[in-house]
Design a binder for these strands. Structure first.
Length: 596
RNA sequence: GCCGACGUAGCUCAACGGCAGAGCAGCGGUUUUGUAAACCGCCGGUUGUGGGUUCGAUUCCCUCCGUCGGCUCCA
């Protein structure tokens, strides 16, 4: 669930919002579920129950934790209500009556919602009723409970009342409902498929990385994972180099004074690993930017030096809260493909434009089509409205200059600057936020950066930050799930596996391997004393892009019989010809071989 | 950090108050094979940790560690 869903969930009762038929169905399903829960637990207090992407949830204050068996009985109760085909009826009440009735029904949480509604007379307190169940609700709903599509309750989870961790924790039940059985089955299949592709499982099966309790949430990279990492790194550095970047590297242990200057000591310390030495305090760096500021300041810069583009791929350390950790998606030690551009104010648009170009280029060999959102000023912000008008305007202009369609994420900006967020849709239709591009006017001020102008005066530069993969860790997690472990050949840890049919073919297999390696292909020989069929099976399991079966016929003709992991195979392909073709595809970073 | 669930061999799982088991993997041997699993044998465990209840705990209770689903956080 992403941030937008959270926001829409929280404002559900204040917002007519859902007008899609599917949304109405989902919201109605939440009511049907709440009705059943009240039957089973008459003392239950109701929180909120909105439609969300793919389904719905409802929050309850219950006398005891729910069990999977409870979910089953709730589902049964819901089925009964669907069978009864109870109509949904809307009615309105004035504020006092509504509060009185809800208080009588022990629904204090609902009372709180009403109390927080705007107090003007135009505010209508509307309720929806079906059967004996009524709920404070803006609607709309389907006509009757019989109109609910096929549904399934998925899981339960704790959720703070109104998303506030100082408030009581309620029990949330998630469910999904669709207009057809087919659509429901497909959704359940996607959930199932996501489980199979889980990068934590594939990372182990493909021997890419491991996690250990000795260093929770910090990945240990195995040889194959490291190959993948280096390929990704090589590609992103190539993109940076073509974009006019220079690479730098900065220390991990940094004294407190720097973080005080950057503001992290005050604002981010909870997320930092702080080290105490005898005479001073330090912090492991959670971000690279402050240190790049120091590099900038080692000389008096001229307007001619700008833009100065620095890439810093150092290790970062963030003391993430235990409950937030999630495989590669949230780790405590990470590496960003971090980019800082120090430029003049009049260069901001061009530099953001360049960033957008680099983002698209870096994503291309993965087959991703990024989508962009302009995240504008939040309620709690630094700086004047004039500043925000200017900063948002520049980002918008850069998006336009780069001919980039985008959405607006109103209020989604950081408190000190607007940003452009970049999103990807993976093979299962899941949305991931990856890159973020920010034009930062605060940090140069904090570090008192300046440059000599043509006129001999001093001006303050702007810093544009972005990381395109985001972090290597998270990127590897995402692409592992996107490709289900079947990485394109240019990324695959083993690109070609030579499979000799019998021991007498080992010598020729070694020749084939040497020819491949000569051409820059990561090639191995499966010299185990196994049947060829078993070697093929294992290679398929490891998602090796290309298997090269060699036997008598091949050795004699200096040929190979390739099999792609897609199942496609041919025989007697001349060795040189095949090596050239494969090496070419790898060098061009083709999205190959792909299942259908 | 909070709510809930989970933790048994390298992996996937069984046993659920009474001798801890299977498949795969690994190792040894046999087999030398033409495109998704050859055959035989062997090894493998202080049931995450510490404590409690019990004649007896993998099983029940508590602590801690870790993981998972969410919430919160993601300057």
């Amino acid at each position: 669930m992403d941030g937008d869903e959270v926001r829409s969930a929280a404002s559900d009762l204040l917002d007519a919002g859902a007008h899609e038929p599917l949304d109405a169905m989902r919201h109605s399903a939440a009511h049907v579920m709440a009705a059943t829960v009240l039957e089973l637990f008459p003392e239950a207090r109701l929180g909120i129950g909105p439609a969300i992407r793919d389904g719905f949830y409802y929050d309850f204050d219950l006398p005891r934790p729910l069990t999977p068996a409870d979910l089953e009985s709730i589902e049964k109760g819901m089925q009964a209500q669907v069978a009864a085909d109870l109509p949904f009826e809307r009615y309105e009440q004035d504020r006092d009556t509504a509060v009185g009735e809800l208080e009588a029904a022990n629904q204090g949480l609902k009372v709180e919602i009403i109390r927080d509604l705007p107090a003007d007379d135009a505010t209508v307190i509307s309720f929806y009723r079906h059967g004996s169940f009524t709920d404070l609700c803006r609607g709309p709903h389907v006509a009757s409970t019989g109109k609910l599509g096929p549904f399934k309750l998925l899981n339960t989870a704790g959720a703070y009342w109104r998303g506030d961790e100082t408030r009581p924790m309620l029990q949330r039940i998630y469910g999904t409902v669709w207009d057809t059985q087919d659509a429901l089955d497909q959704h359940l299949w996607r959930l199932e498929e996501a489980k199979k592709r889980d990068h934590r499982k594939l990372g182990r099966d493909l021997d890419l990385f491991s996690f250990h309790p000795e260093s929770p949430a910090a990945p240990f990279w195995h040889p194959k994972g490291m190959v993948l990492w280096r390929e990704l790194e090589r590609w992103s550095l190539e993109v940076r180099q073509d974009g006019g970047f220079d690479e730098v590297r900065t220390p991990a242990v940094v004294r407190r004074e720097l973080w005080e200057t950057s503001g992290h000591w005050d604002l981010y310390q909870d997320n930092m690993f702080v080290l105490d030495d005898s005479d001073h305090q330090s912090g492991l760096k959670p971000m690279n930017c402050p240190e790049s500021m120091l590099i900038y300041k080692t000389q008096l810069r001229s307007y001619r030096d700008l833009p100065m583009r620095l890439a810093d791929y150092s290790w970062l350390f963030r003391r993430e809260r235990t409950g937030a950790l999630a495989g590669m998606f949230r780790v405590r030690q990470l590496t960003q493909d971090d980019s800082h551009v120090l430029c003049r104010d009049d260069q901001v648009i061009d530099e953001v434009n360049l960033a957008l170009t680099l983002v698209r280029r870096q994503y291309a060999p993965f087959g991703f089509q990024p989508r962009f959102k302009l995240a504008t000023r939040p309620a709690k912000k630094l700086g004047t409205d004039e500043f925000w008008d200017m900063a948002e305007g520049k980002l918008a202009e850069a998006l336009k200059a780069a001919d980039t369609p985008y959405e607006i994420d109103a209020g989604g900006g950081a408190f000190y600057a607007p940003k452009i967020d970049v999103f990807l849709d993976d093979a299962l239709g899941r949305e991931w936020q990856m890159a973020t591009i920010q034009a930062d006017y605060q940090l140069p001020q904090r570090f008192d950066l300046e440059y000599r102008t043509a006129e001999g005066g001093f001006e303050r530069p702007v810093v544009i930050h972005y990381a395109i993969y985001g972090s290597f860790e998270r990127w590897i997690g995402v692409i592992t799930e996107h490709f289900a472990g079947a990485f394109p050949a240019w990324l695959a840890p083993v690109q070609a596996l030579v499979i000799p049919i019998a021991d007498r073919h080992l010598e020729y297999a070694a020749e084939v391997q040497a020819a491949l390696r000569q051409a820059g292909v990561r090639a191995e020989v499966d010299d185990r004393s196994e049947r060829m069929q078993a070697k093929v099976r294992d290679a398929q399991g490891q998602q090796v892009p290309v298997m090269l079966v060699v036997g008598d016929r091949d050795a004699e003709a200096r040929a190979v019989s390739p099999r792609l992991r897609t199942g496609e195979q041919s025989q007697g392909v001349p060795l040189d010809e095949f090596v050239t073709e494969l090496a070419g595809r790898i060098q061009r970073r083709e999205l190959w071989p792909l299942a259908e």
